Amino acid sequence: MPNFSEIQACCRELPDDSRYFPTDVFQLLDKQKLLQLSLPKKFRPQDNFPVFKALFETGKASLSVGRIYEGHINGLKLIEDFGSAVQKDFYFGEAKKGKLFSVWNTEMSSQAVKAEKKNNSVHLQGAKIFCSGGLEIDYALITATMRGGKQLLIIHLKEYPQLNEDWSLWKPMGMKNSVSCRIDFTGLKVSLGMLLGNPESYEQEPWFSGGAMRFAAVQLGGAEAVILAVIEHLKKLNRSQDPYQQQRMGIMAVKIQSGKLWLEHAQKLYENFEDYSACEIVNFANMMRSSILEISESVLHLAERSVGVQGFMEDHPLEQVYRDLKVYLKQPGPDLALQNVGSYTFEHYSI
Results as ranks from 00 to 15, higher is better:
I155L: 04
L163D: 08
L100N: 08
Q151A: 03
S110F: 12
A144P: 11
C181Y: 01
H156G: 01
L135I: 14
V103W: 11
N164P: 00
R147H: 06
K114V: 10
W167T: 02
A140M: 02
R147I: 09
L152I: 09
M146T: 04
A115T: 05
L157F: 06
T106K: 11
S109H: 11
K128T: 03
S132Y: 11
L152F: 08
R147N: 09
K114S: 08
Q162H: 00
A115I: 11
R147T: 08
G149I: 09
F130D: 11
E159N: 12
E136C: 11
N105Q: 15
E159T: 10
K176R: 02
G134L: 10
T106D: 11
N164V: 04
R147M: 07
G149P: 09
L153D: 00
P161H: 00
K150T: 14
C131W: 05
E116W: 14
L163T: 07
W167V: 00
R147L: 07
Y160R: 04
N120V: 07
K118N: 13
L152K: 03
P161V: 00
A112L: 13
H123L: 10
V122W: 14
E107N: 13
Q151M: 03
S178T: 04
L153A: 00
V179F: 04
L152G: 02
A140S: 04
Q151K: 01
T106P: 08
F101M: 13
K118P: 10
E165W: 05
A115N: 07
D138E: 08
D138M: 10
E165F: 07
T145N: 12
D184V: 02
G126T: 06
V122F: 11
L100R: 10
Q125C: 06
V122A: 12
M173I: 06
V113W: 10
I129D: 12
S102E: 09
M146V: 08
V122Q: 07
S168D: 03
Q125D: 05
V122M: 12
H156T: 03
T145R: 14
Q111K: 15
G174F: 05
K176S: 00
L135G: 09
E159D: 13
N120Q: 12
G133Q: 14
G174V: 08
S121F: 14
I183H: 01
G174W: 09
V103M: 12
K171Y: 03
V103D: 08
K118E: 13
A144N: 14
I155A: 02
M108K: 15
V113M: 10
N164I: 01
I155V: 04
H156Y: 05
C131Q: 04
M108Y: 15
L100M: 11
L124S: 14
E165A: 06
E136F: 12
K114E: 06
D184W: 01
L169Y: 09
